[in-house]
Structures are given as C-alpha cells and as structure tokens.
Amino acid sequence: MNYNWNWGIFFQPNPMGTGTYLDLLLSGLALTLETAVLAWIIALVTGSIVGVMRTLPSKGAYWFGFAYVEFFRNMPLLVQLFLWFFVLPEILPRAAGLWLKQLPNAPFWTASIGVGLFMSARVAVQLQAGIGSLPRGQKQAATALGLTTVQGYRYVLLPMAFRIILPPLTSEFLNTIKNTAVAITIGLLELTGQARSMQEFSFQVFEAFTAATILYLLVNAVVVTGMRILERYVAIPGYITGK
C-alpha cells in the first residue's frame, strides 16, 4: 500500500479557513453532541409517553402505542431521515413545504427529530417492559390508597420502572449518539461528516477516521461512566436489582 502517513495533519490549517483540521473535527464533534442530546431528549420524552400508553388499560391508548412503535422501529433509520428530509416537504401543502425547505439548519433539526423519534420507539418498548416487570400489586396498592392513575405512575410505577431499565437505557443513549452519523446523508456536517471532508481535502483518510473513531469512543466512555454514576446514585438500599 502506497500511503503517506502524516499525523501532523491535524495541526495544519484546513482549507475552510476555520483553523486547523483538528478544529474541523471538533466542530463536527460539537454538532454530533448537540444532535445526539436533542435526539435523546425527544426519545426519552415521547418514548416515555408512548411506553406508558402501552401499559394503560385503555384499548385505544394501547393500539396507538402499538402502531407508533411498529411504525418507527420497523423502518431503517436512513429511510426515515430521507422521508422527513426529502419527501415530507413535497407532500405537505406548498406553503408549508416551502417553509420547511427554507428552514435554517434543516439537516440539524431533521436529524435530531428523526433520530429522536426512531429511538423513542425503542425507549417506549423498554419502559413498557420495565413497568410490566413490576409486581401487579404495586399498581393496586397505589390505586387502593386513592392515588389517581397519573399519580400512581408519577410517584409509584415510573420511579421503579426507570431504575430497572437504566442499564438498557444506557445502551440506547449510546445508540442515539452513534446513529447521528447517518445524518451525513442529509448533509449534516457532524463528526463523521467532518472526517469525510478532511479526507477529501487532505487525502489523509486513515488519520481522519482514526481521530473520529477515538472521539466517538471517548464520548461514549464518558456517557457510560456518567450512567454508572447515575445508577449508583439512584440505587435503593437493600433492593436487589438496585445494586
């Protein structure tokens, strides 16, 4: 293989005039983090609502939750992003479609919402399983004390269900971060996107993607550590799964 290794490339100025190649990658990292955090917030909030709906006695709520989850988890993420980014503006009424297309930072919003909704289906399924794993008597005890359904979920069921699903939620948070890389296909210059442009400008493909790999690993290591600390913080003394 005829390849000129050049690890010094990171400290050479990039052709965009925005500092060095390292700065280029770091700006991509920042965008990855912003997208991932917004997507994760969307995934947690909507996923929690849909997950709760799937455990309610109401048939309507259950079927809505069922349809929502199956819609968002059974389509490839890439297809979903294309749908929101390319197809949605075309099928909306003309004015609304035009407004969407002219939205500043459209790739960022599309990626955050698209990845967020995709992940929300997974959060919903896990929360449903978490609530389902609680003894049936817990809900009955809450009900028997006079708590309403909302209060029962808020004060009794959800605090335990979220503790139980914290470890798998950590994996989902990591997946959310990694999935933002798909947004390169709708022109979002996040970490993978910037590694690609570094490769195109400098031809140092191995250095660019080695750096991107290390940055992803570092970010995920931070998330894993943070979630471990959170798990320990919310652990319940004497409770077996709370260890």
Binding site: P135, G137, Q138, Q140, A141, A142, T143, A144, L145, G146, L147, Q151, Y155, V156, P159, M160, R163, I236, Y239
Partner: peptide
C-alpha cells in the same frame, strides 16, 4: 378508595421510598 384501607398479601410497600415516605405519600397527594 382513600377512605377504605387495604393490606395486601405481598405488602406492596413502594420500594424506592423510605418507610416514612411510604406513609406520607398518599396523605399528601390524596
């Protein structure tokens, strides 16, 4: 239901709440 107390076979205390908070939750919220 708030006026009719119920005790279950498997106790059904709320595991994430201290004993005192198990007793206070419904008093305060209901």
């Amino acid at each position: 239901r708030a006026r009719v107390g119920m005790v279950f076979q498997h106790f059904e205390l709320f595991p994430h709440l201290k004993i005192i908070d198990n007793l206070c939750l419904a008093q305060e919220k209901v």
